[in-house]
Write a protein that binds this DNA or RNA. Structure first.
Lengths: 154, 154
DNA sequence: CAAAACCCTAGCGGAAAACCGGGGTATACT
DNA sequence: AGTATACCCCGGTTTTCCGCTAGGGTTTTG
């Protein structure tokens, strides 16, 4: 209830995580996976997913292979990519340098700063959690729940 | 940088906290404070602030006194109102019952659920921090920094 | 050289956030 | 009683942002 249910993961971030999960599953094969395949598997609008993957590429999360038979691969092992890495990469783009706010704003009162300080502290706590989860653990969790669901079914 | 600077407190929440800080400072006097005074002090559009205070009133954070010489007061002591109380009150309004998403949505895959689970866990960590800070501590922090700034100035 | 894939940039549409305004109602003071 | 003050309710407007679409490139395979 309340905050817990209203503060939702952005659609963008969810798409990205689901896509990365697909890449992570096939990491061993080192065969690139194409946008179309991912978008079909996870029900993500393909042209939009394309943009997200571009961001992740620039952020060093995935790498791409151009041309026919190309596609995307994880830039490193699934257990070396934390959820924080991913979300930070996504949300940290197209902010920088547009503010006037953010920090260097002159007419920010002491009250503004204090409130912000605590807000940052709360965010840090959340980041700490996200840094502890990797893509690999995402896969593991899913597989564990698959087993569980299967048991209930029988 | 990154997430840390982009995940910003909503304007709404910041306004509310600043307004409550003003009320908290004058809590002892038990004289109501008017919207105009608060909005002037903290540079908040007064008609907008009015709406926010109405939400906070319905949420039991502040109480109001109508008529001439009226205004707003905290509903309880500043050290008994946590930042979580405030944000939860503000963000938790006008959501409920409009979703289709949220949880009971049938076509949510296992992947969706797993990702959400972890996200919720991260949020919980942030809430824990916010629950530990009260309006009183907001005041104390500000005053501490005032002293500090003064020392540097000399 | 053609097909398959990624690459870049621009812009649209709807929803939510921020804000404004008008007319009502309770209370204090004279 | 009457008037001024300040909250109260609710609808509308503006602006911003997110999710998504679109078009035209460039690189690579075969």
């Amino acid at each position: 209830m309340g905050l817990a249910s209203t503060v939702e993961l952005s659609c963008k971030s969810e798409y990205a995580l689901l896509a990365l999960l697909e890449l992570a599953v096939r990491y061993q094969s080192s065969e690139p996976l194409q946008i179309r395949q991912i978008s079909a598997q996870q029900n993500i609008p393909d042209r939009y997913l394309e943009q997200l993957l571009a961001i992740l590429r620039r952020g060093g999360i995935v790498k791409s292979q151009r041309g026919a038979k190309g596609g995307y691969l994880l830039a490193r092992e699934p257990w070396k990519i934390s959820l924080f890495d991913v979300l930070n990469c996504l949300e940290g783009v197209e902010s920088r340098e547009g503010e006037g706010d953010g920090e260097g704003n002159p007419n920010r009162t002491l009250e503004n700063k204090v409130v912000d300080e605590i807000w940052q502290e709360a965010c840090q706590a959340a980041y700490a959690v996200l840094q502890n989860y990797t893509l690999q653990e995402l896969i593991d969790r899913r597989d564990a729940r698959r087993q569980l669901d299967l048991m209930y079914y029988i």
